[in-house]
Design a protein around this nucleic acid. Structure first.
Length: 369
DNA sequence: CAGGCGTGGTA
DNA sequence: TTACCAAGCCT
């Protein structure tokens, strides 16, 4: 079992906190002990860098300053403030959790670990972070920065993400945790991880805890932690169809089993056909399958390249006109929306890019029938 | 439990 | 341009 002696633990804590006071600091924009605010920031920070979160955080707290206001908002409004942050399930879970807090905890953010952990979107890390940072409760944390830091401190050469690695690192996180100033300590760990114990070029000369680092001792800091599994990227060829009817366009809401669940999007699907005529019939057929609407000849407006998770997507954007309904869909699933009203609907980044193409789309000619 | 989920920044 | 990475969680 990897561990530190009691005296080493004391030295480690002292050096870490001294460094934190001297070179780093609390995230300056969330100086607060309000668990709700810490919660919001921690959810936004999941798999997202600090600089990206800051603006979103202020706007979100401005609009939803407490659990009540969040719980009584519409999911649409919550997602609008989340637009561009990605991983939209976080926003939907947080919205659901806010309702649960109103129902079960009288609108007060819970202060018991098991209660916090039971809320949707809150795992072991987030529960520990909220309660240690906001209320100084003694809970360990383990996330990207501390996984890397602890792996090197312990000289752990296995995969820190598998079950054995996770068990070891959580156990270590718990062992080195002090009894007081737990929130500061946890923040300091993450700051050392993000500012000093860098993934590729660790700044060991500037590290306050290199004295207790096995990787540094053996010169293995470049090879620990063991590299992650390589992502196998897949190319996708898709089309988005902007269906115009008068001065409105067709939007559909992404289902829970689709990417961008809960967001709105222009009808969109994979395309495989070659040649202009085949492409037209494919666009017409798939638009009808998806929306129940028959369209005119489609004009290619532009092509957008973007990546989503492990997919590299080439998205061809087409403008077409409404011809007829083959069958109807619910209004909660599909809507005709004026161009200016697109700003009221949460869209993916590509959807929002398309919404900036009003000129080219409305300049398309009415095809002769 | 391995894979899915978004986007932007950096080398 | 491509590959890697980021204060994880859920199924």
């Amino acid at each position: 079992m990897a561990t530190l002696e009691a005296t080493q633990r004391q030295a480690f804590r002292r050096q870490l906190l001294r460094w934190f006071d001297r070179y780093a600091r609390d995230l300056p924009w969330r100086h607060t002990s309000d668990p709700y605010s810490i919660w919001v920031s921690e959810i936004m920070l999941q798999q997202t860098q600090v600089v990206t979160v800051e603006r979103y955080y202020h706007r979100f707290l401005d609009r939803f300053p407490d659990v009540q206001s969040l719980a009584s908002a519409s999911e649409e409004d919550v997602l609008l403030l989340w637009e561009g942050l990605g991983y939209y399930r976080r926003a939907r879970s947080m919205h659901r959790a806010a309702k649960q807090i109103v129902e079960l905890f009288d609108g007060r953010f819970p202060n018991k670990f098991s209660d916090v952990r039971s809320l949707p979107g809150i795992g072991k890390y987030t529960a520990g972070a909220i309660l240690s940072i906001a209320l100084d409760q003694r809970h360990p944390i383990l996330e990207a920065n501390t996984i890397r830091l602890f792996s090197r401190l312990l000289g752990y050469r296995g995969d820190p993400l598998d079950r054995e690695g996770q068990q070891l690192l959580w156990q270590f996180a718990d062992q080195i945790l002090p009894r007081k100033k737990v929130g500061r300590f946890n923040q300091a760990l993450m700051e050392v991880g993000s500012l000093v114990c860098l993934p590729h070029d660790p700044q060991c000369h500037a590290c306050p805890v290199r004295g207790t680092c096995k990787a540094f001792e053996s010169g293995l800091q470049a090879t620990i932690p063991s590299h992650k599994k390589k992502i196998s990227y897949e190319s996708l060829h898709e089309a988005a169809v902007i269906v115009r009817r008068g001065n409105k366009v067709l939007l559909r809401r992404c289902r829970s089993d689709e990417r961008w669940a809960g967001l709105w999007d222009f009808p969109r699907f994979e395309i495989t056909s070659k040649g202009a005529a085949n492409r037209q019939s494919e666009l017409r057929r798939k638009t009808e399958e998806l929306t129940g609407i028959d369209i005119s000849l489609a004009q290619n407006i532009t092509t957008i390249k973007h990546g989503v998770t492990r997919y590299r997507i080439t998205l061809e954007c087409y403008a077409a006109r409404y011809v007829a309904h083959k069958h109807r869909q619910r209004r909660s699933t599909q809507k005709w929306v004026s161009w200016s009203a697109l700003s009221d609907y949460p869209l993916s980044v590509t959807g929002r890019k398309i919404s900036r193409l009003k000129g080219p789309i409305f300049a398309t000619q009415q095809p002769k029938s």
